[in-house]
Amino acid sequence: MVSKKIVVVGHFGVGKTSLIRRFVEDSFSDDYKVTIGVHILKKTLNVNDQDVSLILWDTEGTDDIEEIRKAYLMGTHGFVLVCDLTREATYINLESQKKYLEENFPKTPILSIGNKTDLLPKGSIADAKDQFDYLDALVSAKEGNNVLRAFEKLTKMIIK
């Protein structure tokens, strides 16, 4: 079975750990436990009739993407760049974070995700779509919306 390394990056508290937990264990907790260093989990996904073993690297949140320890990022097949739709500080410089990854890891797919859609006022998702149209997916780790779909999307980008 092919195995692919996916690194999840983004500001602290945006829900990286929660997204992975939702994806891997289908569970969620409201408590916030800060990740330091890196946690690594595995999950097998079937896309395009093919089993893919995903090695998910859940990194420590940083203010600045360049602070991420370079060694963590070696051999990455795909990035998930997460921001919190309710905290401007986490998405204001998303474009430049993305650019940084593109420059340092050419040809590596990046999926940018806006998390915590459940916290946006109901009915404003449609408006938010316009505001956040530079994001590839709007998800909620809490309610599970779109989480699986987002990881499937990235996996397809990786194996194509």
Partner: peptide
């Protein structure tokens, strides 16, 4: 991955 680069020494801190 580590066998496929030019480097011969890698350090990764704080791995859970």
């Amino acid at each position: 991955t580590y066998f496929e680069t030019n480097e011969s020494r890698f350090e990764l801190t704080c791995v859970n």
